[in-house]
Computed example of a mutant assay.
Amino acid sequence: MTQLDAHARTGGFARINPVAKLAASGLIALPLILTLDVVSAAVALVLELILFPFAGVGWREFWVRTWPVWLAAPLTALTIALYGEASGQVHFEWLFVRVSDGSLALAAATLLRVLAIALPSVVLFITVDPTDLADGLAQIVRLPARFVLGALAGLRMVGLFLDDWRALELARRARGVADRGRIRRFAGMAFALLVLSIRRGSKLATAMEARGFGAPISRTWARASTFGRREWLLVAIGAAISLTAVTAAVLTGSWNVILGSS
């Protein structure tokens, strides 16, 4: 772990309850899902970029974690520009491709929309520990403990899944069966990993049942999950960003509800 990673996970922002981060990202995303316009997405994105430096995440880690978003957003916008609903003046047309004023406007709105929804979600969850999130979902949101703990156990297995894949690859190379036939090799390794995962999952389920994780009674928790002033402040910031974006879009007449539209 680099020094920047360690700072992001030990700073004040990292100690905010993950449930608050989940709620804040949901509040920001909700109005942007309901509408497709440039103004609301642009306002939300600008406010988010102003607040990102206060998240305790270094710029290097920010770009490393968010580069898929910066790559996917323009590609999505390009698709909309080429194949979106045509309206207004048509600038270019060839077979199924039709670039018009309407498709370009939709592409710009889509670009900003994807960035405004995805970037805060990535930034907020960089510092989330899966165990803290499970504690919050079970103790604050009151989700079923059996479901939460099962999901947490499965998430913890992702690292072992990757280690098993690398171990299988090295073992096959040591035996001289991984030099050619990439598709066949991938299928064989995938099947072997599936069998290994099923066996490990069965053992884990049995061990968890034996330790009382599936008991119907109310369980206790080793760490209390609290929701205090910092958490409410973060939720309020998310609500403020959402309200400001909606207000700007309504006042400028660009609010365009797409939910339920044909």
Rank of each mutant, 00 (worst) to 15 (best):
R65A: 14
P31A: 03
A24Q: 07
P120R: 00
V141K: 02
V38Y: 00
E48F: 14
G88R: 01
G58R: 05
A109E: 00
L124Q: 08
V114R: 06
Q89M: 12
R98F: 08
Q139P: 03
R113I: 02
A81T: 09
T110K: 02
V57E: 06
F62Y: 15
L36H: 12
W94P: 04
A145W: 09
L137A: 14
L49D: 01
F92D: 11
D37M: 00
T110R: 07
R98E: 15
R65I: 05
T35V: 08
I140Y: 03
V128M: 02
V99P: 09
L106M: 14
P31H: 01
F125K: 08
A108F: 08
W70I: 05
A55T: 15
W59Q: 11
V46A: 15
K21F: 02
L124Y: 14
G58H: 08
E48T: 09
V122L: 01
V128S: 10
F62W: 12
Q139N: 02
S121Q: 09
L78K: 02
S103G: 05
G136T: 10
A41T: 07
I33Y: 13
V128Y: 03
A86H: 12
I50V: 15
V19M: 02
L137P: 13
W67K: 12
T35F: 05
P74L: 05
A55G: 09
A24D: 03
A134M: 07
V38N: 12
E48M: 09
L106E: 15
L51C: 11
N17T: 12
E61S: 13
A23D: 10
V114E: 06
D132K: 09
F96P: 15
A72D: 04
V90W: 04
V90G: 09
A138F: 01
P74K: 01
T35M: 06
